[in-house]
Design a protein around this nucleic acid. Structure first.
Length: 477
DNA sequence: ATGTGC
C-alpha cells in the first residue's frame, strides 16, 4: 500500500484520501483490504490528480476494480458542475467511448447448449468479426454514417438489425440525445465505415454462459434469470471511431487548456470547460461515439441471433440490458441535500441507478437497473442491481469488470495463449480467437479476483448481487 | 481500447 498517499479507512469497504496540495475534493476508494493493498499506487496518484480538476463535485471515486489508466484511473468516477467551471475530459471518458456490456437471455438451459457447444462457438466465430482491424459485411457511406451516429441502436433496428423491443432495454432507449455527427471528423468516419458489427480486440468478447448461482431470487426473476439458464454476454465498444474521437479531442484539449486557465497536473488529464466551444464539441462527438457503440452491440446481437437460429432454432434471444462503462453523461444527483445537474464521467465504471429511477425501463423500475459485470475470459461474470444508497456513495456507479492486476506485457511473459486455451478447454470452456498473444494478455490470472471485486462493490453499498455466471464458450478479439 | 508500437 502507498506511503505517499495516506489512506484513511472510513469503513470496512471504503478508503479516503483527504485533500492536500491542489486537490479540491477528497479521493474515495471502495475496496476491501486485499484489493486496496494490491492496487497500483498509480491509482491513488491519478485519483488525486482528478480531484484537483476545476468544478469537481463531492469527491473523485475509484471502484473496487480500479487500475492505472490514461489520465483517469480505469474504474474512476468524477462529476463536474458546469456552472462552477466544471470540465469534460477525453481521457476521463476513455478512448473506447461507450465500451460496454450487453446481456441476453436465450430461452435455453445450459443442457441444451452443451451437445452443440463446439458447433455454436465455431459458428459464432465465423459470423461475428473479431480481432484488431476486423471489418464486417456492413459498409456505410457518409450519409449512412451520419444517420448511425445520430440514431444509435434505434438506427440499427430501423436497418433490420434486431427488434424494436430491444430498445427498451438499452440505456437512453438505444439512442443518445445530443449527438453531433458534425463534430466527428472525416478520419474517424473513414476508420469506422467497414467496422460496424465487429467485436474488436483486447478485453472484448462474446460469451455464452451458464447461470451458476442466484443471490437474489426476487430481482433475478424480474431480470428473467433462473439457475442453469444459458445467457449471452457481449462486451465491445465504438471501435476505431471512438478511438479517433478520443485521440483528436485529447490533442485539442492539451492545446487550449492554458487558454481556459486550466493547469494540468498531468497532460493525460487534458480537459475543456463544459461551457466552452471545445467542451461542447467534444460532448457532441462523444455522444455520437456512444451511438456508434450502441449500434455496434445491436448489430452483433443480430448476428448472434442468426447463429442461434441456425444452430439452436428453439432459442429466443431477449435483451436483459445494455450498459456502457466509458461515458460522460448529464445527470441529476443529490449533493448535500440539493439536486444538482452534473456531468458524470464513468471510465471503466458502470451506471447503477437504484429502484424508482425514471431512467430505468418501467418493467425493471421496482428492482433497480441491471449492472452487468463481465469477468475476464474463463472466469465468472456477474449481474447486480443498482441500489438506493448508491446515489450518495458514487453518483450511482459500480465496478465494470474484474480489473487488470498486471500489464499486458507482463501477462505475455507469464502465459502462452495456446496453453491458456487448452487448460480452459479441459474445463469445458471453448475459446476461439484470432490472436494467441491476445489470449495470453487476457489470461484469467492477469486479472483481479472478480468475486472479491463484486463483493466489495456490494458491501460498500454500490449495487446488489443478483446472479453469477460461468462461461461455457467465448469468442475473443 | 487502437488501421496496437519505438
Amino acid at each position: 500500500m502507498s506511503q505517499e498517499y495516506p489512506l484513511q479507512r472510513e469503513s470496512e469497504f471504503s478508503w479516503r484520501i483527504d485533500p492536500s496540495g491542489k486537490m479540491r475534493v477528497p479521493g474515495i476508494i471502495y475496496a476491501d483490504e486485499t484489493l486496496i493493498r494490491e492496487m497500483d499506487d498509480k491509482v491513488f496518484e491519478q485519483l488525486c490528480n482528478v480531484a484537483s480538476l476545476p468544478g469537481i463535485v463531492q469527491a473523485a471515486y475509484a471502484m473496487p476494480d480500479a487500475h492505472w489508466g490514461y489520465g483517469f484511473p480505469i474504474g474512476g468516477v468524477a462529476a463536474f458542475d458546469p456552472d462552477l467551471g466544471g470540465v469534460v475530459s477525453a481521457g476521463g471518458v476513455g478512448f473506447d467511448i461507450s465500451c460496454g456490456v450487453r446481456a441476453l437471455r436465450t430461452g435455453l438451459s445450459i443442457e441444451e447448449i452443451e451437445p452443440v457447444k463446439k458447433q455454436l462457438v465455431d459458428a459464432l466465430f465465423r459470423q461475428v468479426p473479431v480481432g484488431v482491424g476486423s471489418t464486417g459485411r456492413i459498409h456505410l457511406n457518409d450519409k449512412g454514417m451520419t444517420a448511425m451516429l445520430k440514431g444509435g441502436a434505434r438506427w440499427a433496428v430501423e436497418q433490420g438489425f434486431g427488434e424494436p423491443g430491444d430498445l427498451e432495454r438499452i440505456e437512453e432507449k438505444g439512442c443518445m440525445a445530443g449527438a453531433d455527427p458534425g463534430e466527428v471528423s472525416a478520419r474517424a468516419r473513414k476508420r469506422q465505415q467497414d467496422e460496424m458489427g465487429t467485436l474488436g480486440s483486447g478485453n472484448h468478447y462474446l460469451e455464452v454462459q451458464r447461470v451458476a448461482e442466484i443471490y437474489d431470487p426476487r430481482i433475478a426473476t424480474a431480470f428473467g434469470l433462473r439457475e442453469n439458464d444459458a445467457v449471452v454476454f457481449i462486451h465491445c465498444g465504438s471501435r476505431g471511431l471512438g478511438h479517433q474521437i478520443g485521440t483528436e479531442f485529447l490533442k485539442y484539449m492539451v492545446l487550449v487548456a492554458s487558454r481556459h486557465g486550466i493547469e494540468l497536473p498531468d497532460r493525460e488529464l487534458a480537459c475543456a470547460p463544459i461551457n466552452s466551444e471545445l467542451g461542447q464539441a467534444y460532448l457532441g462527438a462523444m455522444r455520437a461515439g456512444i451511438n456508434c457503440a450502441l449500434a455496434n452491440r445491436q448489430i452483433i446481437t443480430h448476428l448472434t441471433r442468426q447463429v442461434f437460429a441456425d444452430v439452436l432454432p428453439k432459442a429466443d434471444l431477449t435483451l436483459i440490458f445494455d450498459v456502457s462503462h466509458n461515458t460522460c453523461k448529464l445527470e441529476s444527483h443529490p449533493v448535500a441535500g440539493r439536486q444538482r445537474k452534473l456531468y458524470v464521467h464513468r471510465k471503466g465504471a458502470t451506471r447503477a441507478f437504484g429502484p424508482g429511477n425514471p431512467e430505468i425501463p418501467e418493467t425493471l423500475r421496482a428492482v433497480g437497473q441491471p449492472v452487468l459485470i463481465g469477468g475476464s475470459m474463463g472466469t465468472e461474470s456477474h449481474i447486480l442491481a443498482g441500489s438506493e444508497q448508491g446515489a450518495g456513495l458514487s453518483f450511482n456507479s459500480a465496478c465494470h469488470g474484474a480489473g487488470r492486476a498486471m500489464s499486458r506485457h507482463r501477462a505475455t511473459k507469464l502465459w502462452r495463449g495456446r496453453s491458456v486455451v487448452d487448460e480452459l478447454a479441459e474445463r469445458g470452456i471453448l475459446i476461439r480467437s484470432p490472436s494467441m498473444r491476445g489470449v495470453a494478455e487476457e489470461a484469467p490470472g492477469a486479472y483481479k479476483d472478480v468475486r472479491a471485486v463484486v463483493d466489495a462493490a456490494e458491501k460498500a453499498g454500490l449495487a446488489k448481487k443478483v446472479a453469477r455466471m460461468e462461461p461455457r464458450l467465448c469468442i475473443k478479439g
